[in-house]
Design a protein around this nucleic acid. Structure first.
Lengths: 124, 124
DNA sequence: CCTAGTGTTATATTTTACTAGTACACCGTA
DNA sequence: TACGGTGTACTAGTAAAATATAACACTAGG
């Protein structure tokens, strides 16, 4: 995995795992890879993984069972709620940044459309 | 000024100054506040300000004149170019994050429109 | 020439993220 | 009971960001 050195790695790991839940690569009740395995996969230290997981446990997104593993919560509403929260967070940040660059609401929408159109031409 | 402890302060200062240029609070050729004054205004150390300015000088967005001050470049194309770059950066980041949350192109545009609409109802 | 205001540079210190290594606690199974 | 797989916790060390403080270099104006 590739990290942006502008933000803490543990924070990026959280988002990485969030995304796997959102896209169904990790379903409710499923067991996460072992912390040591995650550390290897992400080429990162166990403690850094643990810090990310620790926050997610506090948030109630995953549950921890000593000796068994970490599991995605079975309380699906929490996950739905998390997804909406993450989306809102992204929209808000992007909007405020673009607004600060002196773009009007319409211009923001237009530039996003244009960006997506351009992107579609090239790849992905 | 309020900082997000997830990203380096010097980096946020750069963006702060960028925004002031984009919104016309700082026009081409204008003198920036003195580094020591900026440090006070932003409740930050002089060296941290200097680090932000140093990068901006390297980028050619501002020019430095020892004994006189720092000035916004008069090469307006540079600023225009910077603005487009910053916009692109924001769009790209937001798009990739939302895409990673399993939203289609159309859903991304729709959610942004909805966000703006909701926002318009409340305040600002 | 002197001084106030400016940018620039340097050193030492503190804080935080991250790493490395180790040990402990718990579960399931043979 | 023993062992391998698991989460958890602790200590020590490194690197980068930010701070505090000070000194240096240049400009403009009396």
């Amino acid at each position: 995995m590739q990290f942006d050195d502008k933000v803490p790695i543990y924070y990026q790991i959280k988002n990485h795992l969030y995304h796997e839940m959102m896209t169904g690569q990790l379903v409710p009740g499923e067991k996460l890879p072992a912390v040591r395995q995650l550390a290897v996969d992400l080429t990162v230290n166990v403690n850094t993984v643990q810090r990310a997981l620790g926050e997610m446990i506090t948030e109630g997104i995953i549950t921890s069972q000593r000796g068994k593993g970490n599991f995605v919560t079975t309380e699906t509403p929490r996950i739905t709620q998390l997804k909406e929260h993450l989306i809102m967070e992204q929209l808000e940040r992007a909007y405020e940044q673009l607004h600060a660059l002196n773009l009007s609401d319409d211009e923001i929408i237009a530039s996003l459309k244009q960006y997506i159109a351009q992107r579609g031409q090239q790849d992905d």
